Amino acid sequence: MIDVNGIQLHIAEQGSGPLVVLLHGFPESWHSWHQQFGPLAEAGFRVVAPDQRGYGRSDHPDDVGAYTILHLVGDVVALIRALGEDKAFVVGHDWGAPVAWHTALLRPDMVLGVAGLSVPPPFRGTQPPLATMDKRFDGRFYWNYFNRPGAADAEFAKDVRTTLRKFFYAASGDAATDGEIMQPLVNPGQGWLETMPDPDVLPEWFTEADLDALTESFSQGFTGPLNWYRNLDRNWELTAAWHNAVITRPALYVYGDRDLVPAFPGTPELIEKLPHLMPSLWREPVKLAGCGHWTQQERPNEVNAALIEFLQAHS
């Protein structure tokens, strides 16, 4: 347990050398990186993965306003300092990717390099994101569902293990075998889980032990993690000063070709333009065939190889 930014964060740690901070996404925990610890530590790095605020054994502030992107970046900055370092590599997946990207954007002096999995670098839109998605999908986009007070909280907490099992299978490359990637839409009054498949057998990369660890980490429910989504428009307001700003630190982007996030409206076009939009991007984006949303868990060997090559090149 580490005191940072007015709260306590639970971390897992292994290895010695340049610091690499691994930031998980939703609905996950530090355990999402368990297949990265050994290889990165053996490659000569000090690997630290926190349960981010609102998750697992870390503190869960009650105030919705305590989950803005500035709080989340502040946690990373304070964590690096608390670990006795001045600089670190920052790697994020899903929601952890925007935190990593923004850490590099707001505090480039503390970032040796930044890598994002699934979610590409942030280029701030001209309109608030919730209103944009509400209009485009008639209020059915999952961000808008998550912003209905208490709705998703109650649905997901009713049977935590089933919720997580459905989430992980539905967004995996295994569930998208026909090649079609559906937008994550929620029918009004129905909830989201009812439309998700529930596998009889888990994919090979996601074991019952993984599901046990993840289920335990959500013993306090889903409200803290959902509060991240409830700050999307506030984040848009808070980052106005960085509109059109570009990340200058060395950067790596990795994603799966069956991942629903890179298929969000406008995102394929953004990914295609990334090498021109971000001079700091190290090589072309790494596209993993047959991989769904859970990048480092579905394709640990490829992700580890890409990360180690990137980290060693910029140490």
Score class of each variant (00 low, 15 high):
residue 144 N to Y: 08
residue 192 W to V: 03
residue 166 K to Y: 08
residue 180 E to F: 15
residue 203 P to A: 04
residue 145 Y to H: 08
residue 191 G to N: 07
residue 180 E to T: 15
residue 202 L to V: 04
residue 199 P to R: 07
residue 201 V to S: 13
residue 136 R to P: 09
residue 187 N to H: 14
residue 155 E to D: 12
residue 201 V to W: 10
residue 191 G to V: 05
residue 178 D to C: 05
residue 184 P to V: 03
residue 176 A to P: 06
residue 186 V to I: 09
residue 176 A to C: 11
residue 142 Y to T: 01
residue 139 G to N: 08
residue 164 L to V: 11
residue 194 E to M: 07
residue 179 G to M: 04
residue 184 P to M: 01
residue 139 G to F: 06
residue 183 Q to G: 09
residue 143 W to A: 05
residue 203 P to M: 05
residue 164 L to Y: 09
residue 168 F to S: 03
residue 173 G to H: 01
residue 203 P to D: 09
residue 135 K to L: 15
residue 147 N to Y: 04
residue 203 P to G: 08
residue 142 Y to H: 02
residue 189 G to F: 08
residue 186 V to L: 04
residue 157 A to L: 13
residue 148 R to F: 05
residue 186 V to E: 04
residue 176 A to M: 14
residue 153 D to F: 06
residue 137 F to Q: 08
residue 159 D to T: 10
residue 156 F to T: 05
residue 147 N to R: 07
residue 141 F to L: 01
residue 199 P to N: 09
residue 182 M to W: 02
residue 140 R to Y: 01
residue 150 G to N: 11
residue 179 G to Y: 07
residue 175 A to M: 01
residue 154 A to Y: 14
residue 197 P to K: 09
residue 194 E to A: 07
residue 203 P to R: 06
residue 137 F to T: 03
residue 186 V to K: 00
residue 146 F to K: 00
residue 193 L to E: 12
residue 165 R to M: 03
residue 186 V to A: 02
residue 184 P to Y: 02
residue 183 Q to M: 15
residue 153 D to P: 04
residue 176 A to N: 14
residue 176 A to T: 12
residue 172 S to C: 12
residue 183 Q to Y: 11
residue 145 Y to K: 00
residue 158 K to P: 02
residue 186 V to Y: 06
residue 149 P to N: 11
residue 199 P to V: 04
residue 139 G to H: 08
residue 148 R to E: 13
residue 201 V to Q: 14
residue 178 D to Y: 07
residue 160 V to A: 13
residue 178 D to M: 02
residue 159 D to M: 10
residue 146 F to Q: 03
residue 141 F to N: 00
residue 193 L to Y: 11
residue 161 R to K: 10
residue 147 N to C: 11
residue 203 P to I: 05
residue 200 D to R: 09
residue 202 L to C: 03
residue 140 R to N: 01
residue 192 W to H: 00
residue 157 A to C: 12
residue 191 G to S: 08
residue 203 P to K: 00
residue 144 N to P: 14
residue 166 K to V: 01
residue 189 G to S: 08
residue 157 A to H: 14
residue 155 E to I: 09
residue 170 A to W: 15
residue 180 E to Y: 14
residue 202 L to T: 02
residue 161 R to P: 10
residue 153 D to V: 11
residue 157 A to I: 10
residue 175 A to K: 04
residue 166 K to S: 02
residue 167 F to I: 12
residue 191 G to D: 10
residue 193 L to D: 11
residue 179 G to C: 05
residue 161 R to L: 01
residue 147 N to L: 07
residue 151 A to Y: 06
residue 159 D to A: 08
residue 198 D to H: 09
residue 174 D to S: 02
residue 150 G to A: 10
residue 173 G to L: 00
residue 193 L to V: 12
residue 194 E to H: 04
residue 195 T to K: 09
residue 168 F to E: 05
residue 185 L to V: 00
residue 190 Q to Y: 10
residue 168 F to Q: 07
residue 173 G to I: 00
residue 188 P to H: 13
residue 155 E to S: 11
